[in-house]
Nucleic acid binder design. Sequence first.
DNA 1: GATGAATGAGCATTCATTCAT
DNA 2: GATGAATGAATGCTCATTCAT
Lengths: 211, 211, 211, 211
Amino acid sequence: MLQAFAKLNADRQAKVLDAAAKIFALDGYHPASITQICEEAKISNGALYKYFKNKEDLFFAVLDRCVNLMVNEIVTIYSSNHNTGLAIRMLLQATEKLADNYRDYLTIYADLGSSSHTVFAAETSEKFELTVSKYLRRVVEDGKRRNEFNTQLDDNLLTFFIDNYVMLFLYSLVSEYHHNRFESFFCEGKGVLSTKEKIDLVMQSISIIIK
Amino acid sequence: MLQAFAKLNADRQAKVLDAAAKIFALDGYHPASITQICEEAKISNGALYKYFKNKEDLFFAVLDRCVNLMVNEIVTIYSSNHNTGLAIRMLLQATEKLADNYRDYLTIYADLGSSSHTVFAAETSEKFELTVSKYLRRVVEDGKRRNEFNTQLDDNLLTFFIDNYVMLFLYSLVSEYHHNRFESFFCEGKGVLSTKEKIDLVMQSISIIIK
Amino acid sequence: MLQAFAKLNADRQAKVLDAAAKIFALDGYHPASITQICEEAKISNGALYKYFKNKEDLFFAVLDRCVNLMVNEIVTIYSSNHNTGLAIRMLLQATEKLADNYRDYLTIYADLGSSSHTVFAAETSEKFELTVSKYLRRVVEDGKRRNEFNTQLDDNLLTFFIDNYVMLFLYSLVSEYHHNRFESFFCEGKGVLSTKEKIDLVMQSISIIIK
Amino acid sequence: MLQAFAKLNADRQAKVLDAAAKIFALDGYHPASITQICEEAKISNGALYKYFKNKEDLFFAVLDRCVNLMVNEIVTIYSSNHNTGLAIRMLLQATEKLADNYRDYLTIYADLGSSSHTVFAAETSEKFELTVSKYLRRVVEDGKRRNEFNTQLDDNLLTFFIDNYVMLFLYSLVSEYHHNRFESFFCEGKGVLSTKEKIDLVMQSISIIIK
DNA sequence: GATGAATGAGCATTCATTCAT
DNA sequence: GATGAATGAATGCTCATTCAT
């Protein structure tokens, strides 16, 4: 990101990044075309290159916004103090909210694991994963203190357990492939599960470990 | 896939598809270059277009082989009749074996969820997922019959529960990103978990539901 | 230059290099456009990049041909054995011939001294300069042996002396600027000096040192 | 050059032109970038286009200053009245001084002969060449009057003779290429000739025609 | 008057695909 | 049947120039 972009007002910044996010989410990094992004953002090609050094620089800026949006969403629920089940449900709902408001960013985040994005993944994902796992670790510790778990699994395994669900739930919100996979277990490919129902199913599944 | 390719002997077919798989696995579908694939396969550019209509057609052929290899691996353990824990462990080990012998194909499979591959995912993934979930459903049913579970979760949720672990374990074998995520729960990014240890951790986690 | 170009028959090679030379001569390296060169050569954009790694690679190929053509021309007069005056005149006539048959290459050669071409000059110019100065040194040595000089200047200075004329004569053949400068001394900018006349003037001037 | 530039005080004018000269000298006209020039001159992009109609207009302004600086330098030695040898040496020293104080301008001047600068050469070079050749003609006439020449060459050829040396000496001061060529005659590429030594060599060479 | 953000035509280069041999 | 040379549309990117402020 270059100086010129930092100087833009937040609205215009968001407009450009959202346009880029849209195209990157649709096609992935490599097939996404700068021309298309410029059209979407309604700025000229030259303007984009005043804002960002190159395509990669733009992508990193999108990833940055991506992480910020996601981390913010977690932060809003962070200080809450609920019982284990509710705390987990709130994380799932925060994820749902992200998918509603910032679907493109969430899609990009979910794509970071794919091989063509390996190069970009490292720094980016860590920040979000750290936020989520910090949240979950607190949930686990609080839960243990309150004696709400009915299992002897250590904290690491419990956090891992819950995070797996959160991750695959997140994927199912933005990837057709993962959505289909999710549904295949419950409605034999009829494609009718709403997000609310998915949350309920995840919660039922997680409830194994909760008293 | 065109007639000309079908007529090739199996070895030559495998050589071409393996070469394509290697390049597709490395870069993802779009960045992968036909020229590179031809070089890897030691065939001429023209030959490739005698075998496949276009890049997409080639990719589908790779996906086909991908699914066959993976399904075969599951099929070899299908008829076995073990207690629930061992049956699940065998599935994880089958996955490990795939990563050892056909890493490129497994990588491609793991990439199918990403947005730039959405177009290709539908038909392909279903077949493998179906095989796995059929296997797991039998494991669940057998386990219930033998009263090896200590939970009231219905069959769907149990299958879903186990499959989630299998899926993320699979991802962790081929995606650096998912491998790091996996480790982050257990060794704070020191990057030292072997596949065997990962299997043990997954098994510990899954053991919650087994008596 | 890539393999693909080496495989082309000499005619086609020449056609491509001549087209490139024409454009490079007209505009200089940087302003010259690949598109224009392709049009001139009547080959597709893609073909050019099968033949040469990039614009620079193409330019070096042109420079190579340039030096070869020029060196060849000198070589044809090399073995001759004339008195000093005639030997020098033959060098000037060889240069004239180059300007007639390969004007674009000679133009490019003359441009190598300009700052935007500094990067390319080193290897290229040396070869031609060496050929010329080897020729002139022999002329000087032979002349001295035959006692045809009426000056005590050492061999280096004599060679330098003659080469200066050759160089500026060469420049005057391809650069409007140098042609005008040349004429300014003799016909007050009327622009009427033929190449033959220029050779005569140079020979008159050089004749100072010859008995 | 636009009105706005003419209104600037001389210092500011020089600052802008010197900046432009620096960049033009470094890269040649076409590759030189307006942005870089503005940065060098510490003025805004917009300001430059208030001062000059376009890049070409700016270049002409630089050429104008170029010629003025060079002509001035010659003018300072013009009225002197020395013997032929010294008069010529003074011209070479004036050239050396130009290279010391206004290297960029001298570089640009030396580039005017190259094909990408043909468009700009005409008007510009004439003025300087005229000054030089006027100076040399006077030197030649004075020399003849004083009977200092030992040759029958007519005035034109004598002026041409001397000017050739001056020109190539000038080139050798600003063009690596011509410097190397110069040295190649005297020190076999060891790259050790100082400007003073070059002047001495030129003077030795020219001394052929002086009694 | 001065700024510097915005423009968009133009560039070098790549690559899936075709087709004459 | 097989080859690999040729194609040309499309890409990321640059830069002289304009113009609202």
